[in-house]
Simulated assay, not measured.
Amino acid sequence: MRPRAVLRFSALLLSALLLSACGNDQQPALDQQLYIWQRQWTAAHVDALAGSRADFSTVRVLALQAFPQAGWSRARIDAALLKQDARPLIAVVRLDGQLPSLDQDEIIRQVRQLLADWQEQGLTLAGVEIDHDAGSARLPAYARLLERLRAALPSHLALSITALPAWLDSRELPGLLARVDSSVLQVHAVSDPRRGLFDPRQAEQWARRWARISAKPFYLALPAYGVALLPGAEGAPLVESEAPLRRAGERRELMADPEQLSQLGRALRADPPPHLAGLIWFRLPLKGDVRAWSLETLKAVARGDALSAELGIRLEEQDGLFDIRLDNSGNLDRPLPEQLTLAVAQCDGFDGLGGYSAELRDGQLLLTRQRSGRLAAGASRAVGWARCTKIDQGAAHVRP
């Protein structure tokens, strides 16, 4: 082979090797974790934990809370169920942002007692997370607490904190982050709720700014839930989340959009910020939780699956009595449709169910939604019944 041919061959071979190396240089998948935020555990946790185990590596469990007037309270967890679950376990200690001051001695005593009690119940902890929505002016005092807490905890336990985007402009932030092993940047429910729970562009901007400050691993806390807004006494709305408020008035529901969260996940997988270790979803959904995504939708978003809601009408007939059901065979929760229409013949009785009214008009049975709601992914809902000689399954329609 002549010299020039050798050079050309070498260049082509080098290019092929570089392309091959680039093709194999895939970023590791983002770790997916879950918050369990119920203050009292129920039988519904059994299925929820089992159904989430394959997709979420770690559970962060609300364990202990301190409020300005109510004082300290423990979450009533199911220790046997957590032990059986066997995933890495992080206890979350919530220090309300309205506490007038941080009593370091009492906080450390409470945390130590919590750890001893959980250990006595057979639980092995991977870490402790402090959730404190402190104003930026109070970060120096918060840093002092974390320094003492880190010294008081066993060395094998990781210490993390929940963090706010508002801290990005504080000169105290680097010193605060130096006192913990990791941070969890909360990018939801931080603005006026009337503007929504989540903005994917703003969340990504915050994450990239955080990556320039934090030299340690950090996570993003992302919403998989909704809230209701109620009129407040002074104009500002009251926010009702997992705990109902004893207050009359019309509730306007806001729900985090799975499509938006899926969009953010794709962006972060394609170009992850430095030090981003994973995503933590708030919160583990239980059966009957009307203000949380279904577990099927949450898992689909976490995996990066394509999302779709597939609604269909299903009839169950016995001796001329038709039960009418609405099915969602997709992986995306869907608001209840406005109206269902069915072609019928010779009906002598009918009614709507599950928030729908029924009306017979020109050979059509119309089921019209009377109140808002959602049909979870993989779920079915009875929406009416009719006693007719015939209902044409092929002429049933969902709108919209």
Rank of each mutant, 00 (worst) to 15 (best):
Q346V: 12
D96C: 10
R60K: 12
G278L: 11
S101Y: 12
R334W: 03
A243F: 00
T124L: 04
A158P: 00
L366Q: 10
D362H: 14
P258D: 02
P231C: 02
A166H: 08
Q98E: 15
G226F: 08
Q110D: 13
T368A: 08
V383E: 11
P231M: 03
V301T: 14
D169L: 12
F282Q: 11
V398L: 11
I213D: 03
A211S: 13
Q370M: 03
P193G: 09
A379H: 13
E240M: 13
A16G: 05
F322S: 05
F350Q: 12
S170Y: 04
E296P: 04
G378P: 01
Y142L: 02
D181A: 10
V180E: 01
L298V: 06
G355N: 05
L222Y: 06
P193M: 14
A70Q: 02
R150N: 11
G352K: 03
L145D: 14
A277V: 07
L238W: 00
I213S: 02
A395F: 07
Q318R: 13
P258Y: 02
A158M: 09
W72K: 05
M255T: 05
A43E: 15
C347M: 01
L332Y: 04
L197M: 06
Q186A: 11
L375P: 14
A11K: 08
S20K: 00
A16I: 12
D169E: 14
G349Q: 07
Q202P: 02
R246S: 14
A79W: 00
L307V: 00
P231E: 12
A50R: 15
C347P: 01
S294N: 12
D289K: 06
Q69E: 01
D351Y: 08
A48W: 07
A306R: 05
R74I: 01
L332K: 15
Q186Y: 15
A143T: 14
I108A: 13
L315N: 09
Q32S: 09
D362W: 01
W210M: 08
H275G: 07
G320K: 14
E234R: 02
